[in-house]
Design a binder for these strands. Structure first.
Length: 563
RNA sequence: UGGGGCGUCGGCAAAUGGAGAAGCCACGGGACUUUGGAUCCCGCAUGUGCAGGUUCGAGUCCUGCCGCCCCAGCCA
């Protein structure tokens, strides 16, 4: 998939952009992805990133990466670095267009003075509590305070002294003078500057007053020549103020246009930064990059590909209605991509010994196994076969249920690319558990062929016990037990839906020796099991794999129906 | 109850008043198969929140209802 690929029909935002191009309103399309560096990016941000960078690519424009760093009390350098890494990993390039809102602070300040001079802003001495009380409610209008009518010269003096650091945090604010009676609460003289004696991760100690998002954002967009400022639905109410700022600061035409779309929600997970932070801080997960997290770094560690995420973003579309996307669509996009590209390997997660009774002790044969049946160009590898093998515990049943085609006493199956074998018996321990399965192979079926046309219903993977390499495998499942985090019993909160079995660690697994040198984040298909990738915890002599996603499993469904 | 939005299949989502309301995921069948994978085929909205109206013709236009989401941070 190419980065400029786009859905067949235009979503409502692309329609606006296309129409603006056609009318000549803008010479070139300029969008922006404006994260606040106060957390890690997640799959919801990926939707926005794909939208903004995708539109820029599709219409021959550009997309800026801009940190909306107007609140130093919540922002950190660590987040700035993770954001750049994640956007780049997703496959997008902002070229030289990396910006910080904080680099515009001086200009924003000058516009603030201008607004005061025009009578469009005033310094307010009210406390936060007083501001709240005068703001009114959803149904009652707000009430002006006495500072609203103070002379511009006085506001100007106070604003300069705010900047100079003469007042403590919260002592005063600069507010826009608009309409305390507006039905839109955002227009009831919103605060545009607050005093915050806090060092800034990018601007350092230069400022002790910081602009609010609602004031800063339109200015940032206008400064950079953004044509289409795409944000999420909750900012719809803020648009009148966005336009007000640009008008009152007398920014040149054409003005950027704010367009809102519905944020992404996914089943069986949470997307809010607050909840994600909670998971990290309370140790429910191991960190922002825990493979169960819907963060970009978590998905990367889980084994997702950027291609799959981009494909997903294309498929979910862009609209204004609140929606919840089925996580199975994401998994589908992943499987489709990985099926095409992931090299196949044999791995046995829950080992059961299989002894081929009629196979000579000490003999070893090498079998050629396809690296990827979907891609002949991937070639083959050779896998050693011997008398004692590991098979999957789940691939043997002493008393097979209906439609169970795998190994069971008397039944014949194919060992993939090796031989057909028939189960001749079992060995049990004192407690009666099957500890070993016995079988006989048919030398005429070398390579797994059946020259006599005989059919077997199951083909299984296997590993030569003497040649396999040990590994730890981490099995991940959904973070939540319910599709909707908010679906809880009376008095419970969303955390009651956290899946206690979202991680299972298997530490006596066996994998092909060819996996010994696999690099961190390298992805494979373990045949018949799923897609796996090498975890960064992996070290020489101690392989660790994460299960990215299982293969689709028809048998699991049959079994489930059988109860 | 003020303001701003949104209602099309189980979940996403097309449709720009004109043919049988796309497509994808999920789900259910079948074919094929040396991965119970992949692939292929079939099925899946007599109906667009509800009720009226306009029109030769309405998911699209009008009126009225109903439901859901967002807003009362010196967060973004």
């Amino acid at each position: 998939m190419d980065l400029t690929d786009s859905p067949a029909t235009l979503d409502f935002i692309r329609e606006i952009v296309a129409s603006d191009r056609k009318s000549g309103k803008h010479a070139t399309v300029v969008t922006r992805f404006p994260p606040e560096p106060n957390g890690y990016l997640h799959i919801g941000h990926a939707k926005s990133i794909c939208l903004n960078f995708g539109i820029a690519a599709q219409f021959g424009g550009r997309c800026h990466l801009r940190y909306d760093d107007t609140n130093p009390t919540k922002e950190e350098q660590e987040y700035i670095e993770s954001i750049e890494r994640d956007v780049r990993w997703l496959g997008f390039d902002w070229g030289t267009h990396l910006y910080f809102a904080s680099d515009y602070f001086e200009r924003m300040y000058v516009w603030g003075e201008k607004l005061i001079e025009k009578g469009r802003a005033y310094v307010c001495d009210c406390s936060a509590e007083e501001v709240r009380q005068r703001r009114g409610t959803l149904t009652e209008p707000g009430r002006a305070c006495e500072h609203r009518d103070r002379p511009a010269a006085q506001s100007l003096d106070l604003f300069r002294r705010m900047r100079a650091g003469e007042f403590p945090d919260g002592a005063r604010t600069l507010r826009a003078r608009i309409d305390m009676g507006s039905g839109n609460i955002n227009m009831r003289d919103p605060v545009i500057y607050r005093i915050l004696h806090a060092p800034h991760p990018h601007a350092g100690a230069a400022w002790c007053i910081y602009p609010m998002y609602d004031y800063a954002h339109p200015l940032e967009d206008a400064i950079e020549g953004i044509t289409h400022s795409i944000c999420t639905l909750e900012f719809e109410d803020h648009r009148p103020f966005y336009d007000w700022v640009i008008d009152e600061c007398e920014l040149p035409e054409p003005h950027p246009r704010q367009i809102e779309f519905a944020r992404l929600n996914l089943t069986y997970t949470v997307m809010s930064k607050r909840k994600l932070l909670q998971l990290v801080q309370e140790g429910v997960v191991s960190g922002w990059d825990d493979p169960r997290m819907p963060t970009i770094s978590g998905l990367r560690r889980r084994g997702f590909t950027p291609e799959a995420i981009r494909d997903f973003a294309d498929r979910i579309g862009v609209a204004k209605r609140d929606s919840v996307v089925d996580v199975q669509l994401l998994e589908h996009c992943l499987r489709e991509d990985l099926n095409r590209r992931a090299p196949r390997k044999f791995a046995v997660l829950r080992p059961l010994k299989l002894v081929i009774e009629n196979y000579p002790e000490g003999q070893v044969e090498e079998f050629e196994v396809s690296n990827n049946p979907e891609d002949p160009a991937a070639g083959t590898r050779s896998v050693p076969f011997s008398r004692v093998l590991w098979i999957e515990h789940d691939d043997f049943r002493e008393t097979p249920p209906p439609k169970y085609f795998r190994l069971s006493p008397g039944n014949e199956v194919r060992l993939r690319s090796a031989y057909l074998v028939r189960c001749t018996g079992v060995v049990k321990d004192a407690a009666g558990h099957v500890v070993e399965v016995r079988a006989a192979y048919d030398p005429a079926t070398r390579g797994g062929a059946t020259p006599d046309g005989r059919k077997v219903k199951a083909t299984m993977h296997w590993l030569s016990a003497d040649h396999a390499v040990p590994a730890e495998v981490r099995l991940y499942d959904r973070l939540l037990t319910k599709p909707d985090a908010g679906d809880v019993e009376e008095g419970q909160d969303w955390k009651s839906n956290i899946n206690p079995d979202s991680l299972e660690v298997l530490d006596n697994c066996w994998v092909e020796a060819s996996l010994a040198g696999a690099a961190s984040e390298e992805r494979f298909q373990f045949e018949r099991l799923g897609y796996f990738c090498v975890d960064p915890d992996s070290a020489a002599g101690k392989l660790v794999f994460n299960r990215t996603v299982t293969l689709r499993d028809a048998w699991a469904k049959i079994e489930q129906k059988q109860g």
